[in-house]
């Protein structure tokens, strides 16, 4: 299953706080797609994913200051 979290317009650290909240409700192997535009989250979200053992299956810049990252729950 894949779920999308749209946090465009939210400033740090809210995109990460939201992501943590949502991923708790997912099952292992489910994917969470996070769309965000807070620059600092390009550092904090992949770091959080790596440190908590989730897998990043996609991470790219969509356009000017807009990113998407897909985190697969461990």
């Amino acid at each position: 299953m894949q779920q999308t979290l749209e946090v465009m317009g939210q400033v740090c650290p809210f995109p990460l706080i939201e992501a943590k909240k949502v991923i708790e409700e997912l099952k292992s192997g489910d994917e969470l797609v996070i769309q965000f535009d807070c620059t600092q989250a390009t550092e904090s979200i992949p770091r959080w994913a790596a440190e908590s053992g989730h897998t990043v299956t996609n991470f790219e810049q969509l356009s000017e200051a807009a990113w998407t990252i897909t985190v697969k729950k461990k």
Binding site: T39, E64, A65
Partner: peptide, 17 residues
């Protein structure tokens, strides 16, 4: 730096922010 790395965009906050 932001312009060069495609990280510049005018972003309007919501009322609360």
């Amino acid at each position: 730096a932001a312009k060069g790395s495609r990280e510049f965009r005018f972003r309007m906050p919501d009322t609360k922010t």
